[in-house]
Amino acid sequence: MTQLALVIDLNVCVGCHACVTNCKQWNTSGAAGSLSDLDPYGADPNGTFFNRVQTFEVGEYPQTETVHFPKSCLHCEDPPCVPVCPTGASYKRKSDGIVLVDYDKCIGCKYCSWACPYGVRELDEKRQVMTKCTLCVDRIYDQSLPPERRQPSCVLACPPGARLFGDVHDPQSAVSVAIRERGGYALMPEAATRPSNHYLPRKKTTLNLRDEALYRSDNPQRIDGAPFEPNLPPIAEEL
């Protein structure tokens, strides 16, 4: 069974909103559109987005870190938004696990958005139907595109490559490897929704190198021409 999903690397995301912009551009122009904007240039701009990048500050000054946090539908394996829908407009595809809304069936009752704990469904104010991320279902299978372009718009747009896309049920896929080897985790595990999208944690990059090691002749990081320091312990004792 295939389960397509995104893996988002919080260690790489710089909060540029390129994924938001490209998502909106693709989806407002395509089969999932239009994504309406209300008062876009006024004092109270408002609109429909499938993907939002939020920013959090972790810690207390001066020990703070800024975390940019992109958020869209997580295409849960046990999606609580699907069984509550009275019309069947919300459904999860068997073939690839994408959770979709049929805009022709949706009555705009908003019940599905109550059931989702993540706040990623948005009722379009003009069309009055429920909308959400489709994983760009209208381009990832498009045979007229070269294979490397058959990816969600947000993934293609991301300048530092913080977004991976693939099948999380295939243990060899790049997304599965990233989740496995880099501590990928799911949001709100207590909600028992089993999200398919995963996040890779922030990490501190530190150099594990002691001063004396800089002088060892076999050290690839040896500083050429550094003066010998007689006070350093003998290398044999180290080993």
Binding site: T55, E57, V58, E122, L123, M188, P201
Partner: peptide
Amino acid sequence: STLQSALGIRHPHIVQKSQGAMGGSFNTRE
């Protein structure tokens, strides 16, 4: 659920600086 489980970040002190919308959204209305 807590902000910690919502983000997957274990730190007692987390504050939101931006929600990705300047004038609210369906999520702030509903």
